[in-house]
Design a protein around this nucleic acid. Structure first.
Length: 972
RNA sequence: GCGGGGGUCGCCAAGCCAGGUCAAAGGCGCAGGGCUUAGGACCCUGUCCCGAAGGGGUUCGUGGGUUCAAAUCCCACCCCCCGCACCA
């Protein structure tokens, strides 16, 4: 699915000590080896356990995996590992996508000795003497799938490799599966035939995809245009190409290139004058053409043509901006709304000599004035003039400014321009609303025809100029089918989608989907079973292949199960995937033993449907919708997909990753630089939550991660089992924090919010632990053990090699990787201890601030507020809960608690000034006890004697201002 | 234009759905201190402005509004990114 680019220059470098990286890498190698040997990630159906099937769109293997792919597939691995720890039987398999044109074309280039292609391969680590092997497309598939697998294994992915496969006729088993899928779609009436425009190479006689073009022509797609039929008095048609047929009402003249040669040709029975390029294009778009002669552009100058719509006679004039090789080579001039036309007209008016050269009288242009036909807010009646003047355009050679002006006027007039009275029945309408109607009208009256063309010159790799051809026997998937859409929308409604906003996006995309040309020629893929000249294109053969992972274990291992491709008759798939047919008969037809058929059927029905598909946001608008559509078309409801999680595209140091910027990083390079664990760490920190925002990979984060990882391994293994045995109040707080962390992390993991979960699981927990050590001095032994275990397990989905290493070093058996996920005990979570801890922090901060101001003090007196203040606050809180507003609540509460009026007014002020005290407050005895226990800690931190006392027993001159959660502090 | 995502205290980035505990988490950077032969790492403190008592002032793209109270809700506007199909 994702195409992979190629490294040219490597600007990003690691800063971390390579010796440290080697240490981590050694640990990783050890665990990767054990995982593979033990087969702990090989998934077998187990009806006693709930299953979880998670997938990553298989990559297009024309290159190596880079940080972008690594990011998304890491999220899949995290999901898989997490679910495994949660007790699910998890299937995570991986295949490779070879369908499409790029590999074929790249192999061709190697065969032709293309230097760039060769250097691309070398920069990906291919030895020079092996380059020639890449002239065979099949070798690409083999080489890059091997290398992807290698990279993914060292990355630590928990994939069941027995289910690996690649697509296309290179893998006949897979092709049989695709053939079956399309036969069934055809049975259901979801396949049709029709015409379709393509970019065409007239020399090689083939469709020209992006991969068939030099770089500078990549991404240019064909557009709709209109040929307007102006008529000479002798009946010859002068066709002008335009993207703005509505401006026909403002045509003042026709532009022609005097030096150019034009053809006189028969087109659908009329005599046209146009360039050879458009004639070719017309021929390939179903028009009958026949060349009759040739004419110089100059000889047409001065002639008058009839505007087919307005009937106005306008002259043909010379203009050097006209590209005789684009469109028909002849342009209609609408100076009011087209900057080029406006400037060309002005040029001509100020250079009458030019006219004389063509034997014209300068008076020809004198009478020509722009004809406004669109009203545009914020512009004069001649918007083209405004755009030209504001840019200070000198003449028609000022391409850059003119192109800018053109796109400004075109797009504004298209979306906001209102047609004027002189456009007849279109008057008052907005251009974009009526454009199609206008074209229909022009066409049905014979004033114009629709064509497809390329907006600029586009060349094929072979050097020939391409044009647009309409192919007539194109196969379509009928995505516009109402019923199909309806079922698709139902499925989307029933799915778990992360982030939630993609639900509407998916529905909208499905709803607007048009029929899809699903067959191509000359590419790798699976031949269409009923019309084998065609090959099923790449997006269309990758819609339900997740089902194939459940079969691949059997089909891709003939050495074990003895199944041959030719045995995979449609009946086979009908039986194992749809449960249709009688097993004895299917066995008879296919020659596959009935028991094996049943085993495969059980395997499929156990794992299916897909529980979660994790993908980059780019696939939202095509693949993911197709994925859903084909499932609902082929499978019964119980096998419809259950979930999708989307993430953005990776950035490196805040910039889009690109070869030219030199910040393009291959996964294997990143692992060499920083280790797999540190890369995983930095990828998660880049932003592994489910969101449409782009994550940002910071190389410095990977540097830090290496050290952080080694620190954790050392700390955990060196401190497991140390600590004091007695239990302190602060231990309760940390225990509460631990359980709270598990709870939060679990909730975030369930929402595929992996960065947030990781920050909570590591950074926030570490900070809490640091605070605990500061507060407690020596930690409690049991609690420290618990912390180390929990911390390690929470990290396991993210940095599994490291977790397993720590697990082993602290003397545990088995793997942290597949150990049950830690559970939390709700009764151990004590919010009031957190609040009390906040109070301690607050006292410490306030005391520090006071010390800065007071400069010196001998001791600190901390006075906890009197009980009646707590009672009062409790009343206020109660009143607030009942819906009272703050001031009201305070007033109500005062009536209930009797106290001296002087104190009362003071309190009103401080409560309304510090509303946080309302939320923060804990029972007075808890606050007092915690602060009392913290006396020693506070005095250690402040380097001063600290005394905690109750207001009732205090002699502090500041005791009156004490509030619940805000003890009075007095510096003596 | 339509649809989607964003614009937060030097940079990165939480918070926004469920308004008050938000001068606003965390990281980086910067400054000071501790540790250290030194550097790194690590730990602590500070990092919008003013302040000799925990306070005050001005901030969360811009401008309005709702509210006792707005980064958070409403309205209008500005800027950036992505998709709008045959590249995978």
């Amino acid at each position: 699915m994702h195409s992979v680019g190629i490294v040219i220059e490597r600007r990003v470098k690691p800063k971390v000590d390579p010796a440290l990286v080697s240490k981590v890498r050694a640990i990783e190698d050890k665990w990767v080896d054990r995982w593979i040997k033990s087969g702990i990630f090989e998934a077998e159906p187990d009806p006693s356990k709930p299953k979880f099937f998670v997938t990553f769109p298989y990559p297009y293997i024309n290159g190596l995996i880079h940080l972008g792919g690594a990011f998304t597939i890491l999220r899949v691995d995290i999901a898989a590992r997490y679910k495994r720890m949660r007790g699910f039987n998890v299937l995570f398999a991986q295949g490779w996508h070879a369908t499409g044109g790029p590999i074929v074309s790249a192999a061709l280039r190697i065969r032709e000795g293309d230097k760039k292609m060769v250097s691309d391969l070398i920069s990906m680590g291919v030895p020079v003497d092996e380059i020639s092997k890449f002239s065979n497309p099949e070798y690409w598939v083999k080489y890059f799938s091997d290398n992807w697998r290698r990279d993914l294994i060292s990355y630590g992915l928990s994939i069941d490799w027995r289910r690996e496969f690649y697509t296309t006729y290179l893998n006949p088993y897979y092709s049989k599966f695709i053939e079956w899928q399309y036969l069934r779609l055809r049975d259901k009436g979801l396949v049709g035939k029709g015409t379709h425009p393509v970019v065409w190479c007239p020399k090689e006689l083939k469709v020209v995809g992006d991969h068939d073009r030099p770089d500078e022509y990549v991404g240019i797609s064909l557009v709709d245009a209109v040929l307007m039929k102006f008529k000479l008095d002798d009946g010859h048609i002068i066709p002008t190409m335009t993207f703005r047929p509505e401006t026909i009402y403002g045509v003042t003249n026709i532009w022609i290139k005097p030096e150019a040669k034009y053809l006189i040709a028969d087109v659908d029975g009329e005599t046209w004058i146009l360039n050879s390029y458009m004639l070719e294009e017309l021929k390939d778009q179903g028009h009958r053409v026949n060349v009759k002669g040739e004419v110089d552009g100059s000889s047409l100058i001065g002639l008058k043509v009839n505007n087919p719509v307005t009937g106005l006679k306008v002259p043909i004039l010379p203009a050097y901006f006209v590209d005789s090789e684009l469109g028909t080579g002849i342009v209609m001039s609408v100076p009011a709304h087209a900057p080029y036309d406006y400037v060309a007209l002005m040029d001509l008016k100020s250079n009458p000599e030019l006219l004389v050269r063509y034997g014209l009288d300068s008076s020809v242009v004198d009478g020509i004035e722009p004809i406004p036909l669109i009203k545009l807010e914020g512009y004069s009646s001649i918007p083209a003039r405004d755009a030209v003047t504001s840019r200070n355009v000198k003449d028609q050679n000022d391409f850059k400014k003119l192109d800018e002006a053109t796109s400004e006027i075109y797009s504004k007039e298209y979306y906001n321009g209102v047609l004027l009275e002189n456009t007849g029945k279109w008057a008052g309408r907005i251009v974009c609303e009526v454009k199609d109607e206008i074209i229909d009208w022009l066409e049905s009256n014979g004033y114009a025809i629709r064509i497809y063309t390329l907006p600029v010159r586009v060349y094929c790799r072979c050097g020939a100029r391409t044009h647009v051809k309409i192919v007539s026997d194109q196969w379509f998937l009928l995505y516009s089918d109402e019923n199909w859409k309806k079922m698709t929308l139902e499925c989307i409604d029933s799915m778990n989608l992360y982030p939630p906003e993609i639900r509407e996006e998916l529905k909208k995309t499905a709803f607007n989907l048009r029929d899809w040309a699903f067959t191509h020629k000359g590419e790798l893929g699976t031949h269409l079973p009923w019309d084998p000249d065609w090959v099923i294109e790449s997006l269309s053969d990758s819609t339900i292949y997740m089902a194939y992972y459940t079969l691949a274990k059997y089909l891709q291992h003939p050495e074990k199960y003895g199944i041959k491709p030719e045995q995979l008759k449609p009946e086979f798939f009908d039986y194992v995937l749809l449960g249709r047919g009688n097993v004895a008969e299917v066995s008879e037809t296919t020659g596959i033993p009935a028991e094996l058929l049943d085993e495969i059927r059980r395997e499929f029905s156990y794992w299916y449907p897909v529980d979660l598909r994790i993908s980059g946001k780019d696939l939202l608008y095509n693949h993911l919708v197709f994925f859903i559509m084909h499932h609902v078309a082929i499978f019964p409801r119980e096998f419809w997909p259950r979930g999708i999680s989307i993430n953005g595209w990776i950035m490196v140091s805040g910039e889009k990753m690109s070869k030219s910027k030199g910040n393009f990083i291959l996964l294997r390079d990143a692992i060499n630089y920083w280790s797999a664990s540190a890369v995983r760490w930095a990828e998660v920190m880049a932003g592994a939550d489910s969101t449409l925002e782009d994550p940002n990979f910071e190389p410095s984060m990977a540097d830090l991660a290496v050290e952080e990882i080694l620190r954790w391994i050392d700390y955990a293994s060196g401190n497991y089992g140390v600590g004091r045995s007695e239990r302190l109040k602060i231990d309760d707080w940390f225990e509460s924090a631990l359980h709270q962390t598990i709870k939060k992390v679990t909730e975030l993991m369930d929402k595929t919010m992996y960065k947030s979960a990781f920050v909570e699981a590591y950074y926030n927990l570490q900070n809490k632990f640091k605070w605990y050590l500061r507060r407690a001095g020596t930690p409690n032994r049991d609690l420290l053990k618990q912390f180390i275990e929990i911390q390690t397990l929470l990290l396991a989905p993210f940095i599994p090699h490291v977790a397993d290493e720590v697990w082993e070093r602290i003397g545990k058996d088995g793997y942290a990787s597949i150990h049950p996920w830690p559970t939390y005990d709700e009764s151990k979570i004590k919010p009031e201890l957190d609040l009390a801890e906040e109070i301690v922090k607050g006292v410490l901060e306030d005391a520090r601030e006071l010390l800065r101001l007071v400069k010196q003090a001998k001791m600190v007196r901390v006075t906890v507020a009197a009980k009646w203040k707590y009672d009062l606050l409790a009343e206020v809180k109660k009143a607030l809960m009942e819906g009272a507003r703050l001031n009201e609540a305070i007033r109500i509460s005062f009536r209930k608690v009797s106290l001296p009026s002087k104190l009362a007014s003071q309190l009103v002020q401080s409560i309304s000034r510090n509303p946080e005290t309302i939320e923060m407050h804990v029972p007075v005895d808890v606050e007092y006890a915690v602060l009392k226990e913290a006396e020693e800690f506070l005095s250690r931190e402040l380097n001063l004697k600290v005394v905690v006392e109750r207001e009732e027993e205090s002699s502090s001159p500041k005791k009156d201002i004490s509030l619940p959660s805000r003890p009075a502090i007095y510096m003596e």
